[in-house]
Design a binder for these strands. Structure first.
Lengths: 202, 202
DNA sequence: CCTACCGATCGGTAGG
DNA sequence: CCTACCGATCGGTAGG
């Protein structure tokens, strides 16, 4: 009751976003309903329209929030390590950590029904997040710019794939390796292999 | 009218599955509705219940079908190439091809709301598909079994991540590389790097 | 931020 | 495989 009260004093927007995140975590973006979010926040089913003009806007806000937070997380991780290879790995770890800690955000960021509400802010946030990955790949010191981009995309794909498969428990436990170990291993192999190829070529 | 008629003569099950696939492709598994599938197949909204006891079963059938077809595709690709490394790459290409050619299947196989209807047949089909990836990884001739599994999981993650990001057009076109090139590149780097590490260790 | 209400859609059952 | 119907839920508007 006490927390419900708090929403009435300026936190409703946040409460609605949190409720929507929980819904997205379970059933994806399409499972988010304005009415259920309102219910969980303890308000009437159309109070949300005070804060979001419609459902699409609410979900787009969540997605943007996710990309902003992801970019921040990646940038922080990158800034904390000196050695380029370790920095590459640390950034990968940060991606995994974000994906694990924000399943609801991941669902709206990459789930179905995304193409719809591509606000400019959302576009910008998504591009910014990917920029960090490109920056980290650039640390490998590969001369050819196109190859740097390829390393970034390959690494991003690997991290993303592992994160979503893990989130859905689609990675057989028989593997017996923690997600962290796999991120470390995969990232290091990719980094070294790309860097080595580039060195040979020049 | 002619094709609608055909459904009345034994093809309704298939028509419903195809309609559901189209729905899943657009909005994920949660966007599949029995009624809309029936509508598209040209039958009354509850004719589907003749073929599927409920909605969950319909979706589980689609998912199982997807895993069976994926496993078949991967196995075929693997069988067509001799050299272990090329075989590894060819299998990766097959994964990408499947993901591109079956977006509806991919959505139900890996989308939200999967945990629900895990029939034994579905479980078996999914495990079988992953087995192929493990087999291909085993071709690398890595002695340590655990390391072979890790290579398989890392590669599967990479292929899966690239496929889903590409399907959602989340890979910036600025990369200027086709998905095929990235699969080839990533697969080759991973294969060689893992194999080389294993050789050094022994 | 609320009550009351709208048209639409859904999963599923009854009964044939 | 169909018509008719059920209870429930949804997005959104009206009006305050």
């Amino acid at each position: 009751m006490a927390n419900k009260r708090a929403y009435h004093h300026g936190d409703l927007r946040r409460a609605l976003l949190d409720a929507a995140l929980a819904l997205a975590e379970d059933g994806g973006p399409m499972a988010v309903t304005v009415r259920e979010a309102a219910r969980r926040a303890g308000v009437s089913h159309n109070a949300p329209y005070r804060h979001f003009p419609d459902k699409e806007t609410l979900i787009a806000a969540l997605s943007e929030e996710g990309f902003v937070e992801l970019a921040r997380t990646l940038r922080t991780a990158r800034a904390e390590v000196r050695d380029p290879e370790d920095r590459f790995v640390a950034t990968g770890m940060a991606y995994l950590r974000f994906a694990r800690g924000h399943p609801g955000h991941m669902a709206v960021m990459f789930g179905p029904g995304v193409a719809k509400s591509q606000t400019p802010e959302l576009q910008r946030a998504a591009n910014d997040a990917f920029q960090v990955v490109k920056d980290v790949a650039a640390d490998a010191g590969i001369v050819e710019l196109a190859e740097t981009r390829r390393l970034g995309t390959v690494a991003w794909s690997f991290l993303h794939g592992l994160s979503v498969l893990w989130a859905q428990k689609q990675v057989p436990p028989s593997v017996g390796s923690s997600a962290e170990l796999l991120v470390e291993l995969g990232s290091r192999h990719l980094y070294r292999s790309f860097a080595q190829s580039a060195r040979k070529r020049s």
